[in-house]
Amino acid sequence: MSVLPEQISQLETSVAAQFSGAQEYNLSEMMNLLKFYNFDPVEVGTEAAKARGLIVARIIIKSLTVSPRADAAAACYLLSATLLEDENVQAALTLQEQFECIRLDAFWASVAKPAVAALIEPVVGFFDNIRDVIAGVVSITYQRLSLSLFGTLVNLSGAELTQFISSKGWTVEGDVLSLPLVPENTSSDGSVVSDNIQLPQLTKLITYASTSN
């Protein structure tokens, strides 16, 4: 009935494979590991606790890559009070908050710190994924914005920026980036949602009204 250490180490291996990209992203598996940590806590300050802190921090970082799905939030509900005190977990939570609020200047400043960079490093492809998420939210918000602004949002410049934009198939004229028109960035006025009553729904009522007179 108790959680077996083998179960935990097995899950840890497979979550590590998610980080390295050897396995598909799987939220349930990461959440299971967090749950097992809750059922089987280790003593604060030990090597085992630190190792867990690192894995949990990376789970939060990994789950950011599927934003705007709330996977990171779902994972956070399973943190324990002691894990919340762990410095790596706290660093990951700060990153998550900056990213979720789209305070991207702060986010890029954070990831430049060596400690945070070391946290992210095993999460292979994190930056590519995160830039895709940013490009996604920009493309539903803007129809047109300056190239330099976009560059700071995705933290790219020069050839890298040009390459990123062309990989999206977007067009640049001078310093202006035009984004393809989609329903989300072409909101127009006057769309009114109303109910729709069909005549057949009213036949009984009308029959009743005409017979009871």
Binding site: S67, P68, R69, A70, E100, C101, I102, L104, V137, V138, I140, T141, Y142, Q143, R144, L145, S146, V176, V182, P183, E184, N185, T186, S187
Partner: peptide, 27 residues
Amino acid sequence: LLNYKHKTRSTQGSTVSYSDVDFHVID
């Protein structure tokens, strides 16, 4: 503004904004 769009998007894979006020930015 980005945060607004980000948070009001449904998390179910659909990218439609369900909020009653929507907007887009040009420049």
